[in-house]
Design a protein around this nucleic acid. Structure first.
Lengths: 206, 206
DNA sequence: CGACTAAGACGAGACGTACCGTCTCGCGAC
DNA sequence: GTCGCGAGACGGTACGTCTCGTCTTAGTCG
């Protein structure tokens, strides 16, 4: 009795699934997440409401799935490794800034962030499918930099990822200022400065 | 025609205002923000629904007002200034960690954060009444530290506050780990390391 | 200075609307 | 034959607006 006569995924209609996610993507762009309703998604997709309730636990879950399908955010997730940590982190934070600076993506991220804040199940899904993989590859990259002596040998990688992503996320969430490449670069410089070994013999040229 | 025959604030009933905020505080603690309804607030407060709709634009605005009244978050906002920046920042981040670690406060913050993410008006009110004052006094403290030579003379104060608060906020929002005093201290150390002048003559003992 | 009057905020709740989540149908595919 | 499907009816809940009659207050006049 996991959840009231669980449906059989093998018999799930791929046609319906795709139609729902497409409709959700279109509608969230047209009316915004707040005014998005399950009934409107079902009507647009030409699907019974029960079909949505059968396969998704919440409106947030539908939109999150649609978000994953729309962009190819899942899967091929990897940080560049040119050997220069500063260069690689700049690449990542610049790309992140660009994505968050796009008004359409910005709205979607805010809606999903809001849901994730209050919905533990959605938070868990976000962690396992997006955030944790991102943090993992970031830690991997920092670990190789640590072994290369580019950052302090006793660096705490969990703390490091907070230092790298936290400030940008903070600036974005509260709209403290524009998200520019120049700003991203300065955040990287600051983070690396905090992670550098105190006796730096080879400084990363500014 | 600012907003359909604007009501006269001079004739506003203080009794009703207080009753609404009290009821909102109690109910958000009892049933949570998500299940909180305007009708329930009105009933608990012994107030007509119209009275709430007359003075507040949204459920989020009511809860935000109640939040401001409940705690004394407004007004006496100041950072300590012992002369030692590290000590003062540790005090602030430790206090922040403690507050966010409290389950009840945590729920309220998450609910308000979610609303602020999607409601521009509420975001503006949060900025002017809470966040901007906090960032302002933080910049003040950093400025005096800069003049005292404790951080680099060319420090960008806007960037600095992002470095100070961003990582903790990130860790909290995505539940990346427990919010302890030890963690707060390490964040302060990292931020100060990033802000220190490259040629430090007097290091702040770790 | 005190009483009258008009304005408007108040408590209460009815009202139509929207959407919720569940359910009940045949229908068709496996 | 089973079960997911489209369609939509259904009761429930909360929305935001509105309409009462009451009560408080500001402004005016005696």
């Amino acid at each position: 009795m996991t959840s009231r006569t669980a449906p059989d995924p093998a018999r799930r209609s791929e046609r319906s699934r795709a139609a729902v996610l497409t409709a959700a993507t279109e509608l969230v762009a047209e009316v915004g997440y707040g005014k998005l309703t399950i009934e409107a998604i079902a009507a647009r997709a030409g699907v019974g409401k029960q079909t949505i309730y059968r396969w998704w636990p919440s409106k947030g879950a539908v939109v999150f799935d649609a978000f994953l399908v729309a962009g190819r955010h899942e899967g091929g997730l990897a940080l560049p490794d040119t050997g220069n940590l500063a260069t690689d982190l700049r690449t990542v934070l610049r790309a992140g800034s660009d994505e968050l600076a796009d008004p359409s993506a910005d709205r979607t991220y805010r809606a999903l962030s809001a849901e994730i804040l209050n919905d533990p199940a959605l938070h868990a899904e976000y962690r396992t499918r997006l955030l944790d993989p991102l943090l993992e590859v970031t830690r991997d990259r920092l670990r190789s930099a640590r072994e290369a002596g580019q950052i302090a040998p006793d660096t705490d990688l969990d703390l490091a990822v907070e230092l790298v992503y936290g400030p940008l996320h903070y600036r974005w969430q509260y709209r403290l200022g524009p998200l520019s490449h120049a700003h991203a670069d300065r955040l990287v410089d600051a983070a690396l400065c905090a992670l550098n070994p105190p006796t730096a013999d080879g400084g990363s040229g500014a």
